[in-house]
Write a protein that binds this DNA or RNA. Structure first.
Lengths: 247, 247
DNA sequence: CCATACTATGAACACCGTTCATTCTCTGGG
DNA sequence: CCCAGAGAATGAACGGTGTTCATAGTATGG
């Protein structure tokens, strides 16, 4: 396309190379490849060698751009919430806003195989993640939660969301190995609960039909709802920390 | 002591060996050794070779008693709650009973380094664990929770407890590597929050002093309390599943 | 055009989980 | 008492892992 001996006009940056040749390695491309491997091979199959192979590159080349495998996982983690916008806090609608956040978070955690395993292994206090924590706290703060409740609510919610998604991915892993459908596994598990001796496990038998849902959506949202009700019960109360401050 | 050529009296079982010699390998001893390694080296240092070395035994000997490393981890997981007695359900005191359960569970999860990493990676539906799930459901059921709330409350609680303990162990890992005391790390982290630009992170700055507690006990229990309040709000309500059943 | 800085290479190291043919040890039966 | 056989333990091996490092290649600024 571009004739080689034409002078480059000053208003457009010169092409990096005459021929595009090889795209240079970069953190971005490494993380991309890592996600490809993660989706194809799962967490246990995610190795530096596989990532390098995916890029058609020597393993050691990765270490020019990335200190560690740990740093690579960190970068993958940071990308999890990239581009997600938590809305402006609206005290009237804080419950829906939080529920919406929870839904989107779960959706993202399930958007890549075993991603929940990665996020679970990292503390969410990296600079890239802090804005989301801040926004979530803003929504909750607008609801009028006391300081100490607010300070732990982020942890509480993210712990639940992560844990739920992780458990889901554990089940997915299990039926990836042995079964062919979520349906079948679900029925087997519920059937197992139903078959327990009713004298020793009355409650599990009684709940056997709803321990695992058709999809997990309802169970997930009910869990969030329970947390929301608990949080809401603190609105207007003073900080529950008097004897704690006093000590 | 025992004279070699004396006939063994029929009422006592013959000694296994003339000399005690080597204690034979067993699942129990392997799990013991695994816990020793876990405490000393952490999760990443827990390898079959290390466990074998701890027992003074060849690696391959382990595979006579244990199918997999995965099975070994499963056995370690099963031992987590061994011997813990959840009390008889008392509808008057269900909150205290659940709080007590949560406290004990966290205590056990923190009793071995990185143990939370192991429990997080397993679905809690092994035969050894089911009795504890059943007992917890019994306590919650006695409180009068609707069926669907009950069915998810176990998950909700255990997810929170596990997640909290895991996060604690991540921090412990971090200050094991770089710092010498929890005190110092805590101050640094809180100081970091306080130093954020207040216009972009008003909430984090505002909460900087209480984001991490002196010990985590108070934060943990407040989290459980929030969940308890949420659960309690459903007592007496009908099952929140009408439109769900209808669909 | 060359020197320099940066990138990529491949070989190597020290681990890891797992398997397998072999050896050892112990026990029960003749 | 001895011997056969079953079970347990061995050591070597295989293919994989994360990471390092001296070397080779390449692109860019002086």
């Amino acid at each position: 396309m571009t004739q080689p001996d034409m002078p480059t006009p000053p208003w457009e940056r010169p092409p990096r190379r005459r021929t595009p040749a090889r795209v240079p390695l970069s953190r971005e491309r490494i993380v991309d490849a890592a996600y490809t491997i993660l989706d194809r091979e799962g967490y246990d199959g995610l190795s530096m060698r596989q990532v390098a192979a995916e890029l058609g590159v020597a393993v050691s080349a990765l270490y020019v751009h990335v200190r560690d495998k740990d740093e690579l996982l960190q970068l993958m983690y940071n990308r999890t919430f990239e581009g997600y916008e938590i809305p402006e806090p609206d005290p009237e609608r804080w419950r829906e806003q939080v529920m919406d956040f929870a839904r989107q978070a779960r959706e993202r955690l399930l958007s890549h195989r075993d991603l929940a395993k990665i996020t679970m292994a990292h503390v969410p206090f990296t600079p890239e993640l802090l804005p989301y924590v801040e926004r979530l706290l803003a929504v909750l703060g607008a609801a009028g939660l006391p300081r100490r409740v607010l300070a732990i609510s982020g942890d509480l919610l993210s712990t639940y969301i992560n844990g739920f998604a992780l458990e889901e991915s554990l089940w997915q892993e299990r039926y990836r190995e042995t079964h062919d459908s979520w349906h079948k596994l679900r029925d087997e598990v519920n059937g197992y609960f139903a078959s327990l001796p009713p004298d020793r496990f009355p409650n599990l038998v009684r709940l056997a039909d709803i321990m695992m849902d058709e999809s997990n959506d309802y169970r997930f949202e009910l869990g969030v709802e329970i947390i929301l009700r608990g949080l809401a019960s603190y609105i207007g109360e003073p900080d529950p920390d008097e004897e704690h401050e006093a000590s």
